[in-house]
Design a protein around this nucleic acid. Structure first.
Lengths: 236, 236
DNA sequence: CATGGCGAAATTGTATGCAATCGTAGCCAC
DNA sequence: GTGGCTACGATTGCATACAATTTCGCCATG
């Protein structure tokens, strides 16, 4: 497992190292440098970041709360391996929450927000046009960031955290069950959502968002991984 | 702080002690044996449960993820003290999620579920008729349990976890800002929701649920605690 | 060749020790 | 009396040590 994680090699700064570990591992999971079901050994994680098992363990515990890591008693931590059911739950939850985010955002939408979102979509399109694995990873991450940005503009910290979790888990699900390998189909839909937001057309924006989620979910093949999942089931 | 927590005095069983600590503290917070902003010292928690600081710390970290405890670097853990804004966020989130729970439940509602809910409401009414602080606590907890039971019947583990968190935080909010001191006004509304569910009337059940949440929120006085909150603000 | 048991190595669960940080009491100057 | 400084006790952040558990290789057996 020689994967390079985001070791910012943050100097022994006083800030919380377990947070840095959580973020680095989350990024690695989200853009698929860490495959589902990968074992995350405490001492390995710890030494990679230059901290003791205590801190590594805290970071892994945080990730388990977000559903990105599964902790098994006396067996350790593994990158989550969501079942088809869990995958459906993730998208069902998004269908509930994201329209609410839209409503909240419409009510307080400013031109600054529009600008930030436009900038985000611009970056998205840039990665779309690039080639190579690095661009693919950046594209995956960036396309989720649009939804996170929206959530942050809702002004509701709780919804924002829920969306953090749901977007991250979506990425895992897409990694496992995605047909086209990426949710890139959504770029034009993101544009349309932004357009509706700028027109303060709440109903249309919600409709487009639900449509967008439908599209992402339609790209999944929830039978695909039954083989590997079976193997994994034995391990459980 | 001589509050008796749920020390099940669980014998040194092999199961996870930090989970037991989390649950006991959560119960204590939810039914208000622990006041908002109370300091939770690691060594105190640890000795109360007969474990080391390591385990106590893990339990506190879990509670901080649920928003019931606030962790401050180098200062420790405190029972959360949600601001009026957070209070509104909690209920805004519930208004998004609970109708979704209703929809999910209606689609798979069985007579067994109806029976379980009826039993739950029966217990609720029993506490309503009793007197004394113990019954008040049980009543608070039980009225939240109705919503949790519904969430568990949705078949969506993610929504269930979100609701766990939202109901727990609601209890904190009601403790801080509630006028009548309890959300008991809701018992008849719970009955009405169950009735609509049994008729498979999804729209009506959703409407009643939203109404119910409105009622709970209307009972709040979000200015009330500005004094204590100010004092607390100094501490921050 | 598959199966089962045994022991060593690896890994986790937990307690504890130490340094760093925070909170506070006491003291002094003004 | 107020404001500020210092020193000390309390508490947290983190690393490490040790026991408990799991994993894995190895060999014997059917």
């Amino acid at each position: 497992m020689n994967i390079q994680k985001d070791i910012k090699s943050a100097e022994p700064a006083g800030e919380d190292r377990s947070l840095a570990i959580r973020d680095a591992l989350r990024n690695a999971i989200i853009d698929r440098r860490l495959a589902p079901a990968t074992k995350l050994t405490e001492s390995e994680v710890g030494s990679l970041f230059g901290v003791s098992r205590t801190v590594a363990r805290a970071g892994l515990q945080m990730l388990s709360f977000e559903g990105l890591v599964r902790l098994e008693r006396n067996r350790g931590a593994f990158v989550a391996n969501p079942s088809p059911e869990e995958a459906q739950h993730v998208f069902a939850s998004r269908r509930l929450i994201e329209p609410g985010v839209i409503s909240a955002v419409v009510g307080r939408f400013t031109s600054e927000m529009a600008e930030v979102l436009r900038e985000q979509l611009h970056e998205e399109s840039r990665y779309l046009s690039e080639r190579g694995a690095v661009a693919r990873r950046a594209e995956i991450k960036t396309s989720g960031d649009f939804h996170l940005l929206l959530a942050s503009m809702s002004g509701n910290a709780i919804l924002e955290r829920f969306m953090d979790e749901l977007v991250a888990r979506s990425s895992l699900v897409i990694a496992l069950y995605g047909r086209s390998g990426t949710s890139s189909c959504g770029h034009s839909e993101h544009l349309a959502i932004l357009d509706a937001l700028e027109r303060r057309d709440e109903q249309e924006a919600k409709r487009l968002m639900l449509h967008h989620i439908d599209h992402i979910e339609e790209d999944l093949d929830l039978q695909a991984r039954s083989a590997t999942r079976l193997k994994d089931a034995l391990a459980i």
